[in-house]
Amino acid sequence: MTEIIRSLADLTGRYDAVFCDLWGCLHNGKAAYPAAVAALQGFRATGGKVVLLTNAPRPKSSVIKQLDGLGVPRDAYDLVVTSGDAAQMGMLSGAVGRKVHFIGAPKDEPFFTDFAEDLAAYAATQPPITRVPLNEAEGIVCTGLFDDLTETPDDYRSTLLMAKTLGLPMLCANPDIIVDLGDRRLYCAGALAQAYEEMGGQTLYFGKPHPPIYDLARRRLAESGAPADPQILCIGDGLRTDVQGGIGEGLDTLFITGGLEAERFGTDVESPEAGLLLPWLEGEQLSPTFAMGRLR
C-alpha cells in the first residue's frame, strides 16, 4: 500500500539517486517551487544524486537554459535527461527513416541541431536526417503542437489522416498528453500521438513511461560516478508517466499528488487525504511506493 509521507527528508539514507520530474514537481512552467528546490538540495547534501528526468522534447541544454530562467539553481541537480535526448537517439538511428516531416513549435528547432556530447558523437557516424514536406517523408518527428497556447489536437486531424494514408510512422518526442502552465492546461506531443494511434497510425515513444529514457538516464548516472546498482527513487506527478514508468523499471516511486491530479485529493494541496487518494490509486491499478502533496 502507498505510504503518505511529509517530506523527501523522511527517506534520507534509503536512496542513492532520484529521477525527478520537472513540470508539476519542480516548477509550474512559470517559476520554480522553492520548497522543491530545497528538498533536492537537501538530498544532494546527504550524498545523493539528482537526475532531472523530463518528457520535454528538447535536448538537455535547452532545458537547462529554461531552468535557469525559472530560477532553479544548478546546485539542485546533477544531471538532466530529457525525452528529447532519447528521441534524438531514435531519430539518428533511423527509427522513422532519414527523410522526416516535422510537427512542432519553433522553440523545438534545437531538436535537429543541438545534441548532447554522447549523441553528437553518434550523429557523426550516421547519414544525415533531412526535413521534408509530408508527401515526401518516410516518417514524422513530433515534438508538440506548433502553438500550444491556441491549438488543440483537432487542428491536426487532416495532417494526421494524410500521414496515416501514407503509412508514415511517428516518432513522439514527448509522451505527455497535457501539462499545466500556471493555471492553463496545454496539450503536448503525446496528445497528437494518441490521436494518431486512434486513427490506426504507428507511433514510437522514447520518454516516460517507456524504457529508452530510463536506459539513457541509468547510463549517464553511472558515468557521473554513482554507486554500482544504485537505489533509485522516481518522483513525479504523472501517474501514467512517472509512476508507471518507475514501476515498469522495478524502481520505487514517489507520487506528487499536488500536480496534475491536485483537485482529486482534498482541499489542502500539501496534504492529500488518504480516504480519497488510496481508493483512486486502487481504481487506477497502480500503487506508488510513496505519495506526498508537493515536493518538499
Score class of each variant (00 low, 15 high):
73 P>H: 02
293 G>T: 10
285 Q>D: 12
282 E>D: 15
98 R>N: 03
76 A>Y: 14
203 T>G: 00
184 R>N: 11
29 G>T: 07
89 M>H: 12
118 D>K: 05
206 F>D: 04
268 D>A: 02
231 Q>K: 14
40 L>A: 08
45 A>L: 08
158 S>C: 05
91 M>T: 00
67 L>T: 03
259 G>F: 11
281 L>C: 14
175 P>D: 15
38 A>I: 01
212 P>S: 01
209 P>C: 05
225 G>V: 06
29 G>V: 05
174 N>L: 07
249 E>Y: 03
187 Y>S: 06
76 A>E: 07
195 A>F: 08
132 V>T: 05
133 P>R: 10
24 G>I: 10
194 Q>N: 07
43 F>I: 03
205 Y>E: 03
59 P>K: 13
179 V>E: 15
83 S>Q: 09
27 H>W: 09
43 F>S: 12
215 D>Y: 11
190 G>Q: 12
157 R>H: 14
101 H>Q: 05
104 G>Y: 02
4 I>T: 02
5 I>C: 09
115 F>D: 02
114 D>A: 06
168 L>D: 09
109 E>N: 15
223 E>A: 14
205 Y>W: 13
122 Y>V: 14
216 L>D: 15
124 A>M: 06
269 V>N: 09
177 I>T: 12
39 A>K: 15
219 R>S: 14
157 R>F: 10
109 E>P: 00
67 L>S: 09
42 G>M: 09
110 P>V: 05
202 Q>K: 13
193 A>G: 12
240 R>C: 12
231 Q>V: 14
243 V>P: 03
64 I>D: 11
113 T>A: 04
129 I>D: 11
186 L>T: 03
172 C>M: 04
39 A>C: 10
149 L>E: 14
280 W>Y: 15
262 A>V: 09
110 P>H: 08
141 V>M: 02
203 T>V: 15
212 P>G: 00
274 A>C: 09
52 L>G: 01
112 F>C: 13
104 G>R: 04
18 V>T: 14
75 D>F: 02
49 K>M: 08
184 R>T: 07
47 G>Q: 03
46 T>D: 10
168 L>W: 00
218 R>Y: 12
146 F>Y: 15
9 A>K: 11
246 G>S: 05
52 L>T: 07
155 D>S: 10
114 D>P: 01
88 Q>R: 04
204 L>T: 00
165 T>V: 07
226 A>R: 03
253 T>D: 15
2 T>I: 03
152 T>P: 09
194 Q>D: 11
172 C>L: 04
268 D>E: 13
234 C>R: 04
213 I>R: 05
201 G>E: 00
122 Y>A: 12
226 A>Y: 08
123 A>F: 02
232 I>E: 05
234 C>F: 06
242 D>M: 12
148 D>Y: 05
78 D>S: 08
44 R>L: 04
178 I>F: 15
186 L>E: 11
146 F>V: 14
47 G>W: 14
87 A>G: 03
30 K>P: 06
108 D>S: 00
39 A>Q: 08
164 K>H: 14
87 A>H: 06
206 F>P: 01
61 S>E: 13
32 A>Q: 05
138 E>Q: 15
94 G>M: 00
15 Y>R: 07
45 A>P: 11
209 P>E: 05
96 V>D: 03
174 N>E: 10
6 R>N: 08
48 G>H: 11
172 C>K: 03
261 E>L: 09
93 S>I: 01
61 S>T: 15
191 A>C: 03
282 E>G: 15
104 G>E: 05
